[in-house]
Amino acid sequence: MPIIKAAIPPKKTMLPPGVYTPVISLYKPTKTQELDLDAMYKHCQYLVRGGQHGLVYQGTNGEAALLDREEKKDVLRTVRRAVTDLGVPDYPIVAGISGQSTNESIQLAKDAAIAGASFGLLLPPSYWAKAMSEEALLGFYRDVADESPIPVVIYNFPGVTSGIDLNSDDLTTLASHPNIVAVKLTCGNIGKAIRITSHFTPVQFSVYGGSSDFLFPTLEAGGVGCVTGMGNVFPRATARVYDLWMEGKKDEARRLQDVVANAEWACKKSLAFTKFAAWSFVGGKLGLEDERAFWPRRPYLPAGEKMKKWTVEVMGVLEEEEGRIPERVFGGV
């Protein structure tokens, strides 16, 4: 018996499909590690020119838990200015709006909208995981979505939420909310993705993989893209997997996917490795020579010398591919 698609209307505003980078935060090389907004402006434009279809700020790779409310607004204002200056003022900017209470998440959504974000990315609360029953989880997402001035993308990442893992039934239920438009599955569960895509068209509720190492399978399963920390390092190559698949060049997409998946292994290991790789492969191109700009914010620690070498070796397999792909050209500066 065929699975029947859900009878819900298309959402008013959907997250555009494609590959999104959860952008790292860059800091000044001081004891208190203030945000380096000038550096983040440059990095933002580099990622857009690199072909990324959208950017995510204040997610896990952006160290959202280590930024205060005003810093988050400063970053969003900066990157909206960066894409506007580049000539793409409507470029998709997703902001993390995850708080430990309903009220906090609603306030973060309102802050994000005012500062220039297009969508909000929302983790489930997890400080007191035992209190987050299914009823509490569903109520949380509905309450935030009711009040959010921007569409909400569910962020399912059990690794940072004390094991809280929204299942396909939960996601199917939440997909009917008019202001909940997509899910990012950092749980890496392709079976879950298929169960969701079997019930919804992409204009009803979209599915994104949580990394680029399974982008090809996500697209084959009916998903519409991914959010990948590797975009911070190799934006052109990661976006190219999606672009090739969309052009019907699946053999080429699969070949590039194999290389991308091997390179992403370093990102899976540690945020510190992702940030070091970004400095190693991108920092010089942006004029950011001081490695400390790419260190994680304390108490997180930068990569040690042994793992730096390993990271460059693992991720370096993609450097040649990246160099063959031209940057996008825009009408702005």
Rank of each mutant, 00 (worst) to 15 (best):
R195M: 01
I196Q: 00
I196N: 07
T197F: 00
S198R: 06
H199P: 00
F200V: 06
F200T: 01
F200C: 10
F200K: 09
V203T: 15
F205W: 04
F205L: 04
Y208Q: 09
G209R: 10
G210M: 04
S211Q: 09
S212P: 11
S212D: 05
F214Q: 03
F214V: 04
F216V: 14
T218W: 01
L219Y: 07
L219A: 03
E220M: 14
E220C: 07
E220L: 07
E220Q: 11
A221G: 15
G223Q: 03
G225D: 09
V227T: 15
V227H: 15
G229A: 03
G229C: 07
M230T: 00
N232D: 10
F234M: 11
F234K: 02
R236L: 09
R236G: 05
A237Q: 02
A239S: 14
A239M: 09
R240Q: 12
D243N: 06
D243T: 08
L244F: 03
L244W: 11
M246W: 12
M246L: 09
E247A: 13
E247R: 11
E247Q: 15
G248F: 01
K249W: 00
K250V: 06
D251W: 00
D251F: 00
A253R: 02
R254A: 02
R254K: 12
L256C: 09
Q257W: 14
Q257E: 09
Q257P: 11
V259Y: 04
A261I: 15
N262L: 15
A263F: 03
A263Q: 14
A266S: 10
K268N: 10
K269Q: 09
K269S: 04
A272T: 12
A272M: 00
F273C: 12
T274F: 01
A277M: 06
A278M: 13
A278C: 14
W279H: 14
S280V: 03
F281V: 10
V282C: 11
